[in-house]
């Protein structure tokens, strides 16, 4: 999980979507507004990884929906085969993959839908949902054994 620190942006997790500071009422909002997603030039943004970009405070990348979660996915590096199924189907861009390797989960943006657990093909699964309060070490300690094929 040390990798995740590398990927963190200084602004990460500052803003809570529902109860954040600086939200205004409907009558205070001007009609029509332009929100720049980045500070400065963003022409070649498609070629930059998220840790290389300079996100503005308007970008929802700086916000968090972590409070939506009841269950959280826990990732087990030892079993993962880097198939990237979870990456392609994650609806919240919360699977961190670099250089064809799965690094972990972005807990600021994960809503805990457990789509990643469902599409994980390994046996036992390398992603399992645990209660939000379970520490990661405890979750990894409780990992189930490999399931044997049922006799037909």
């Amino acid at each position: 999980m040390q990798h995740l620190k590398l990927l963190a942006n200084d602004n990460r997790g500052l803003n809570e979507l529902e109860n954040g500071t600086g939200l205004m009422g409907w009558h205070e909002v001007t009609q029509g507004s332009i929100l720049p997603s980045f500070e400065g030039d963003a022409t070649h943004i498609a070629h930059l990884k998220s840790e290389e970009r300079s996100y503005s405070n308007f970008n929802s990348y700086t916000a968090t929906v972590a409070s939506w979660r009841v269950l959280k996915p826990v990732y087990n590096r030892d079993i993962c085969i880097d198939c990237q199924n979870c990456w392609v189907w994650c609806p919240d861009s919360s699977i961190l993959s670099r250089d064809k390797q799965m690094l972990g989960i972005d807990y600021d943006h994960c809503k805990g839908c457990s789509v990643c657990v469902e599409v994980c093909p390994t046996n036992p699964k390398s992603l399992i949902m645990f209660s939000e309060q379970t520490p990661l070490e405890d979750a990894l300690g409780q990992w189930p054994e490999k399931k044997k094929k049922e006799d037909k």
Binding site: L17, V65, Q84, D108, C113
Partner: peptide, 21 residues
């Protein structure tokens, strides 16, 4: 899929679509 996964996300998280949408 492994090669596809090296592309950089341009749709950021923390949108408010339902979980699993």
């Amino acid at each position: 899929l492994k090669e596809f996964s090296t592309s950089n996300d341009r749709f950021e998280g923390a949108h408010t679509l339902c979980p699993g949408c």
